[in-house]
Design a binder for these strands. Structure first.
Lengths: 208, 208, 208, 208
DNA sequence: TATGAATGAGGTTTCATTCAT
DNA sequence: GATGAATGAAACCTCATTCAT
């Protein structure tokens, strides 16, 4: 009403989402009570259910927002069809690493939450997350194939390699978030890129 | 009872542990009820508490067993002081990969459980798991240092590299377990080793 | 609004009453939510409370209207003081049956609602309904007394007989409404009158 | 354990059932809280759910017991194939009236409850009750047919007549229970039988 | 050692009602 | 008069844990 917000989310909904993020991150999904969330948000118990069907619904909402934004940012920065040279490819991959690491750093509590709890909310939820991951894996696998054609990436099982890269990333970022230190994102991106590339690279390739 | 078992675990305790493993793996820690476990074990509700202080205690017990066995097996197969040549080192690392993958394959339901739920039982529990992982990371980091001295591994942040390798492993094994296919452990070990080594290896090294 | 309505009810109040009737009839008093009613009426949640003090109040209002109209119609058609002959009495009773059955048929959803839920809203409400019934029973009892004097009705406990007749009616109409068939009101009135007056017995039978 | 009870119901279950009967009768189904029942029974909240799946389940259990006992008693006292003479039929019908009235009197709070709330618990429940009533109606209709063959009952719509008789009964018993007086069951049975058989009319009256 | 009935705290969710705009 | 977002009191039900036998 008073501001020209571009989102349709109400002030209250926003506050509940923010509160949920904090509470979930601090206590974990299962230990977090809806009453914790509403207390943190400063609204009444019933208000929560005006905006979210259930505890799981708000969690899903948070996760969906996080991943769709992340995937949009990351994938739009790396249009595979624009890659024609090894240098371009390296540039893109490096860039994607930076974007992802920043995204996780900028929404640290949500990142922490997702990395910690994605697999143990329930079966349906796990599948939902798995679907997001599969998108990333698909992109990575496509990238690897493209790289192989350019002679940059050596031939290997692209799915396995993609999941390995993703896992490498998952764990390092988790540590990053847990330790709450390391704001040297750029350096970390460099090192992960090195690990990834040298792992994937063809013998003759002169990358880096 | 009748035989001179080398363990101190009673038959009943054994059955409860086995039942818990199955039930936890199938439903997850939070969804699993103690009543599910005792039903699966074929004992009464109260019997559970003769052997385990709480639901979390039995979970901890399962996880402790799993990790201490794994670490013992894996680390004893790779005494870092015995490494004097690059060939030996490769041999050891390859061996360790195989041991680990086999361990996870041989106790699939427990492996699945740990990979899925380790981080979301509770803070104390998370720290416990983190401690096991830290042992592995320490070993990996030591190895990397040793490798660096041998000119086999290029200089990099050993902690970061170690966590990255561990994450690579975590995720690929999780997929392995989830998909329930891929019994080609040996092949997988080869590929992971390749990814790891080429990622970590020094430029001039002639590994593999 | 535009016409000179004789009632004082506003258009909005009318719509809420109509909506409530439908919703209550479909879901029953307890399952019906105020939010269902306002949705059906197409007004806002708060508007409801401009016209009715509570959920029970609107229910009471509906029931009061139904019963006062019914009693007025029925009783005015049967002035007991006008009865001087058996023929007149039969005529009146027959007429009353028809009026009542028509009233229930013409407001089927409200009728259904009352027959189903009148006794289980709450104690105060039950007493209210009981009072309406008592009016009918009083009339029936008076009628029976009069009939007895005319030698038309045999001597019996007039209260018991009155409640019995009322129950006979209640249940048959309920079935009528439930089954949603039987628009043959006239025939039904005939049969009920027969049952009331003559019972089940055949003319020649020497029972008792 | 200590007594040679013929039922399999535990002492606790028995107490909960008894408590539920009282609480439901006093407050009605909807106003009765499970916590009221357990308080009345002197057991803990959770104990309730050891024996009954839900609040509706215990209600259903009470009602089922009531009706199956009633129907068994009543129907076994009136084997229609044994009827060969009008006298026998009257005898049987009279007997059935007495049995039913006694059953309701002997379990007054449950009777009250059923007569008050049978239709407003929920659709499934209503159908369940309706099924019991249909049994009674079927019996009554069969009886009427048989009576017609014996020349005792005049030809009429047997379903309508049966529901009418049932309603007559329902309402009079309800009044009986509500008023908490009238222990003169025998007299009441006589009068209801009279009404059922002969209606209101005097012997000499030439109605219609 | 084994049983299993009993416990009771506590969480999620619903919905009649209010009130500032 | 009309709105609809906000309220908050309950109520049902679960399940880890205990304890008398």
């Amino acid at each position: 009403m008073t501001d020209s917000s571009v989102t349709t989310e109400s002030h209250t909904q926003e506050r509940i989402l923010e509160a949920a993020k904090l509470v979930f991150a601090e206590k974990g999904y299962h230990a977090a009570r809806v009453s914790d969330i509403v207390e943190q948000a400063g609204v009444a118990q019933g208000t929560f259910y005006l905006y979210f069907k259930s505890k799981q619904a708000i969690f899903t909402s948070l996760v969906d927002t996080f991943f769709s934004q992340l995937l949009e940012e990351a994938l739009s920065a790396a249009p595979i069809e624009a890659v024609t040279s090894p240098e371009q490819m390296l540039q893109q991959v490096h860039n994607v690493w930076r974007i992802i690491l920043r995204h996780f750093r900028d929404d640290r509590s949500l990142a922490y939450l997702i990395l910690r709890e994605a697999r143990c909310i329930g079966p349906e939820f796990e599948e939902r997350i798995q679907a997001y991951y599969q998108q990333a894996v698909g992109w990575l696998a496509d990238y690897a194939s493209k790289g192989a054609k350019l002679g940059l990436v050596r031939p290997l099982d692209p799915q396995l390699a993609a999941w390995a890269v993703l896992g490498m990333f998952e764990r390092t970022v988790y540590q990053l978030v847990v330790l709450e230190g390391r704001d040297d994102i750029e350096l970390m991106a460099d090192q992960l890129l090195e690990l990834e590339l040298r792992g994937l690279m063809a013998d003759g390739a002169k990358g880096g």
